[in-house]
């Protein structure tokens, strides 16, 4: 029984939250890695793109709620999500046309694009603030739990409860579908292969008749959609606060680099590696240890690091991976 309790506690406090968080990071990292692979720079504006997409989705959600539309047990935000994705895609396409294209056509050094993305970050940050302000917004509605603690206890008779929030389950399901669709697109369709070809060898892609501008447009649309989905899922799971989306840039970059920049598969693996480590290292293991070793009474919480240091975890993992495997877990384009 104690072992079962320990497993339930592990699921409840570590595995479920970390899986949801990992899926969110993976979606964010996929966007970063695609832009790195195809446009050849790290997009510092990605966090703010996520925030912008989420802000639009929230506004649309409020509109739907005001109109009395709802999805029953599912959050209304799911209906508003396509609006957010479309608006974000339009914004990044406009940004590309106004900012990045100029340097791309001139074959400017990629570092200029990084600098430009800092400028874009400021503008998008300001736009998001204009749209929705800097306060925390909660926009999840519908059923809060798929399984709640009490009914789980009644169902199983275990002492330890298990809660599975709707948003967590949704995150994992949506992330799975999106990732599957993306891989199908990249590996099975002509357009997707053209994107990979462009990432591999720009000149040869051009000489093969692939339109570079079309590849770039597709990349931005996909990256914007991924960013919006990641942002909305993160916001549903926790809450929306513009600054948090800026801060999440570090774990997202860490995930993309740990996996190997430019490798979509790596981005997913990296997202989960970072998420599991973050949660496992900042979780107080006292309760689980109590079930496993009933006689043992440690005086601490058995927490390796306080939750406020979760960013330190992404950083340490990043450093360790880079020291031993400079190209990331899956061989990326860097180096």
């Amino acid at each position: 029984m104690d072992i079962l309790n320990a497993i339930v506690a592990l699921l409840n406090f570590v595995i479920i939250p970390a899986t949801a968080y990992g899926a969110q990071l993976a979606l964010g990292a996929l966007g970063v890695t695609l832009i790195y692979g195809i446009l050849r720079f790290s997009n510092f504006a990605h966090g703010d793109t996520m925030a912008f997409g989420t802000a639009i989705t929230i506004l649309a959600t409020w509109g739907l709620q005001a109109a009395g539309v709802s999805l029953g047990p599912l959050p209304t935000a799911l209906l508003a999500l396509p609006v957010g994705m479309a608006a974000t895609a339009l914004l990044v396409l406009a940004t590309d046309r106004a900012v990045y294209r100029f340097y791309r056509v001139k074959k400017a050094a990629p570092i200029i694009l990084v600098m430009a993305s800092v400028g874009v970050m400021f503008v998008m940050n300001g736009l998001t603030r204009l749209l929705i302000g800097v306060d925390e917004e909660r926009f999840a509605d519908g059923a809060r739990f798929v399984i709640d603690v009490r009914s789980f206890r009644e169902m199983t008779g275990l002492q330890e409860g298990l809660a599975l929030r709707t948003t967590q389950l949704l995150t994992v399901v949506i992330a799975f579908v999106v990732v599957w669709a993306l891989f199908w697109f990249l590996n099975r369709t002509k357009s997707g292969k053209a994107m990979r070809a462009y990432s591999d060898n720009e000149d040869l892609a051009l000489l093969s008749g692939i339109d570079p501008e079309r590849v770039v447009r597709m990349t931005w649309i996909i990256a914007a959609s991924l960013a919006t989905i990641a942002g909305v899922l993160y916001g549903l799971d926790k809450s929306f606060k513009a600054f948090n989306y800026f801060q999440i840039l570090l774990p997202i970059f860490a995930a993309a680099i740990v996996g190997g920049l430019g490798s979509p598969l790596g981005a997913i693996a990296g997202g989960f590696v970072v998420a599991y480590s973050e949660v496992a290292i900042t979780y107080p293991w006292l309760k689980i240890a109590g079930y496993l070793f009933p006689g043992w009474q440690p005086d601490g919480l058995l927490q390796l690091l306080g939750t406020e240091y979760k960013f330190a975890v992404s950083f340490v993992i990043l450093i360790v991976v880079l020291l031993f495997k400079p190209t990331g877990l899956f061989r990326g384009k860097s180096v």
């Binding site: 050094a109 000149d203 920049l261 860097s334």
Partner: peptide
């Protein structure tokens, strides 16, 4: 900055003006 692999990706960069 062009040596910093965490921000720029020189791999497969093009030279032909498309």
């Amino acid at each position: 900055g062009n040596r910093d692999a965490s921000v720029v990706n020189p791999h497969g960069r093009g030279t032909i003006d498309g």
